[in-house]
Design a protein around this nucleic acid. Structure first.
Lengths: 138, 138
DNA sequence: GGTTGACTGAGAGTTACTCTCAAGTTTTAA
DNA sequence: TTAAAACTTGAGAGTAACTCTCAGTCAACC
């Protein structure tokens, strides 16, 4: 059993955020000890893990709560939960594509600046230098 | 030259956000026409592109403004800008790793539910079924 | 000449934290 | 054994980055 601080360290989520998530109803199974302190079980850690996963791919808290409520209802909601996970995965794949594109742009920019530095060139792409003839740039 | 609406469509950023970014000083070179309407040039579109890129990898607006201010200063800040782009790229690469991990978890979950559905099994991972013996699950 | 449609800025509202605080326990240290 | 340090708690204020609503201006069409 783990206190909120231990969970925060273990899972890489701040204590504040964990309390906020708890208040949002994301951990309906976390028990309190005799001093009203939350004690997270191993199973609860898995809930933290899946909540963290859903959040990190941009799922809204409202939708996460919905998913958790479906879990609470029980086995009759398995196919609905399956669809949610499927859709979330598709969204994550799209994000991967988008991130790749942005990485390409950052890579281009990096090499562009590198070239300017190594060859002591002017930044002809910068609008401040609009009057100057451009070298190969975005 | 493009109006804010056209830029919004072209770049996949809402008009609201573009106005917000403009007010934040992200487009210091966008001119207005005789009716006070913002007209974006091709160069301005590239600024939108780089701002969108920095935002999408989690760069704070304050830091974006700083980068833009460095651009305005001119060529003397090239090496500083180079460092910013390098650091941003590293952050993006980390995000890629994180996203891969989350995708793996979603993939596992997807297959897990698929197995439950196909074989008509109980969701023994769900804390609601804690009393039952677990099948292979997270 | 009146309505439609695009644009404007100001400002209120929203999401998801993030931080501060006072109050209660508990462990450590003198 | 008592005082201080180290936890935890919930309430509530603050923040970032939008997101939306609205009143007002202006040009263009019927």
């Amino acid at each position: 059993m783990y206190t909120i601080k231990e969970v925060a360290e273990k899972m890489g989520v701040s204590e504040h955020t964990l309390r906020f998530w708890a208040k949002s109803g994301f951990f309906p199974f976390v028990k309190r000890n005799e001093n009203n302190i939350r004690m997270f079980s191993e199973d609860d850690l898995n809930w933290v893990k899946i909540v963290k996963c859903l959040r990190s791919v941009g799922t809204e808290n409202k939708a996460i709560k919905k998913y958790i409520d479906l879990c609470i209802v029980g086995d009759s909601t398995i196919s609905e939960r399956y669809k949610i996970i499927q859709a979330t995965k598709q969204k994550a794949l799209q994000q991967m594509e988008e991130l790749k594109k942005q990485l390409d742009l950052l890579d281009f920019k990096e090499k562009f600046y590198q070239n300017l530095i190594e060859n002591n060139l002017e930044d002809t792409w910068n609008p401040m230098n609009q009057n100057k003839v451009k070298n190969k740039a975005v």
